[in-house]
Structure formats: structure tokens, C-alpha cells
């Protein structure tokens, strides 16, 4: 039995989400291979070959795969996938875009957002926005799976020495073209990779007030997030959103500031190790999941907290 993991990368570096998928694959058991499909992505393959527990890296380096368009990469993965018992990708937007297309080409189901491995064919996954956990058995010969990173620890990025094998198959469906992208620039860690997150909600009042959280975040080496209410109110861009419809996070410390704690938000952060809530409404539902709650006006409490760190 061998497992193929689709690497999450930007042609330059291997993204951390791949390492959580490696841990999930190790729990299933069997040889673990990583596919790096991109263009000019040798450095990614080198990084993948160093990941502990990986025995082989497949490198498909071709212009057709440069932007990892699902129309092209799915054909490659479906061709390679027939040699594997499991094909796994992180449940990132890239994985979610690609993997169902692969599954359909292989005529199998996909199990989305897996958070627990019970056996080689049985997995747990959240349904109804995390309000229920389903245990599902796959009846297919090839299991196509996306892994929710918060359910698995990251595998060690060093210590492995996998062989790198070139894949020469080129698939260009010729029906889609990459036009451009606008990526948010930030010196802070990415939300899904941060060990500390400071998040603001509607209580922040406006976008300028997020400067209070940014200052606090810089002291803690934290990422800055937001609730959907803050995003919908136009305070901050949507890629900062933590919640069922945004990023799912599980840092060591999550500080929720001026966030009431709607179910949709809790679904995105309730697996954090320690949760702190600062809110002036002592009835706010966020306090029912917080390890430490502080009923206070955030405009007093946040600067004070910042000063004491």
C-alpha cells in the first residue's frame, strides 16, 4: 500500500499544510510519496524530500503546471493515482479545488476535511459546520481525501532523505488560463500556521482600530484574524476571516477581542489550545468556550495588555 500526497506550494517553498497531511498518511500506514506539480519548483521537491516519513518525491516540473490549474493537474494526479491506495491533499483552497476533480476522474468518492484516521478506510470528518462529527467508511479502491490541518500535528520538516523522481507526463487541457493574483502582503505569520492569533470582531468598531491588535500581535509574534462580522462590516479583508466559511485554525493561544462568538466563528477556532476572550458583554457566547475570560472594554484592556507584555 502506498499513499500519494499532493504538495501545497508556490513553486518556491513547501507550505506547512503538507506536513499535517504527511502525519495523516503516516497514521494510515504504508509508503508515503509526495507529488510536487509546478514549474521551476525543484526547491520545493528538495524540501519535500527532507520531510520525515516520506520515501519518494515525484517532481512534475512543467509550464502546464505553473499555476496548478485544476484542469491540468487533475489529469496528472488521476494518471498517477491508479498506483496508490490513497491520494491525499491538505484541505486548503488549492486542495479543495483540485481533489474532487481527481476523484471524479478516478470514479471514486472524496472524503473532505478529514480530522481523524480510524483505519485505512474509515475516517472522521465534521458536518453541519462542525456541529456533528461523522465517521465514514470508504468503499472505493482508491481513497481520495482532503485533510484538515488542525486535526493532525505537522510532521518534522527535516530528517528524511527521500529520492526525487522526475515525472515527464504533461497534461494541458487548454481550457483555462491564469490571469493574475492579488495576495495580501504581511510580515506576520500566516493564520493557519501561527502559534498565536489575535482576532477582532464587530466590537472593534472600524478598520483603523485593528492597529491595536496588530501592535499586540507583533509583541506576541502572532497573526491577526477577524470574525465574519468584522469582515462583512468592511473593517478588514476577507482573507483574515476565521470561521467555518473562512480559515480553520488551532493555535496554542487564541485571543478573541470584541468577538461575540457566533457558531460560525467558534467552528473555526474552538480547537485552539488556550482561548482568551475580551468582551464587554459578559453574556457573550465566546465566554462559554474561553479558558480565560475578561469582561472589559477592549479599548482599555488591549492597550493595557500590550503594555504588560
Amino acid at each position: 500500500m502506498a499513499i500519494l500526497i499532493i504538495a501545497e506550494h508556490d513553486n518556491q517553498s513547501l507550505k506547512g499544510a503538507t506536513l499535517n497531511a504527511v502525519t495523516a498518511a503516516t497514521q494510515i500506514g504504508g509508503d508515503v510519496h509526495i507529488l510536487v506539480a509546478g514549474a521551476g519548483c525543484q526547491a520545493v521537491a528538495d524540501a519535500a524530500s527532507a520531510v520525515a516519513g516520506v520515501s519518494k518525491v515525484l517532481l512534475a516540473d512543467n509550464a502546464a503546471y505553473e499555476h496548478q490549474l485544476a484542469e491540468n493537474v487533475s489529469l496528472l494526479v488521476a494518471e498517477l493515482g491508479t498506483d496508490y491506495s490513497h491520494v491525499i491533499a491538505p484541505a486548503t483552497t488549492a486542495g479543495k479545488n483540485l481533489m474532487p476533480r481527481v476523484a471524479a476522474l478516478l470514479d471514486v468518492a472524496q472524503l473532505s476535511d478529514v480530522i481523524r484516521v480510524d483505519s485505512e478506510d474509515t475516517f472522521a470528518r465534521p458536518i453541519y459546520a462542525g456541529n456533528a462529527i461523522a465517521t465514514v467508511k470508504s468503499l472505493d479502491a482508491i481513497k481520495v481525501i482532503t485533510i484538515r490541518g488542525t486535526g493532525f500535528d505537522a510532521a518534522a520538516a527535516e530528517g528524511g532523505s527521500a529520492v526525487i523522481e522526475a515525472v515527464t507526463a504533461v497534461h494541458d487541457a487548454g481550457i483555462s488560463t491564469f490571469i493574475g493574483e492579488e495576495m495580501a502582503k504581511s510580515d506576520r505569520p500566516e493564520l493557519t500556521a501561527a502559534s498565536v492569533i489575535v482576532s477582532g470582531g464587530r466590537g472593534m468598531g472600524n478598520g483603523e482600530n485593528f492597529a491595536l491588535l496588530e501592535s499586540l500581535a507583533d509583541k506576541l509574534g502572532a497573526a491577526v484574524g477577524a470574525s465574519r462580522a468584522a469582515v462583512d462590516a468592511g473593517f478588514v479583508p476577507n482573507d483574515m476571516q476565521v470561521g467555518q466559511t473562512g480559515k480553520i485554525v488551532a493555535p496554542d493561544l487564541y485571543i478573541a477581542v470584541g468577538i461575540s462568538g457566533a457558531i460560525q466563528h467558534l467552528a473555526g477556532m474552538k480547537d485552539s489550545k488556550v482561548i482568551v476572550a475580551i468582551n464587554k458583554d459578559e453574556e457573550a457566547p465566546i465566554f462559554s468556550v474561553a479558558d480565560y475570560g475578561l469582561v472589559a472594554d477592549l479599548f482599555d484592556a488591549v492597550p493595557e495588555l500590550d503594555g504588560k507584555l
Binding site: 483552497t93 491564469f178 493574475g180 493574483e181 492579488e182 495576495m183 495580501a184 500566516e190
Partner: peptide, 9 residues
């Protein structure tokens, strides 16, 4: 809407 921003195809 992709992780980290927006992509146009």
C-alpha cells in the same frame, strides 16, 4: 477566493 488573497482565471 484563495488562501492568502484572490486569483483570477
Amino acid at each position: 477566493e484563495v488562501d492568502g488573497g484572490l486569483q483570477t482565471v
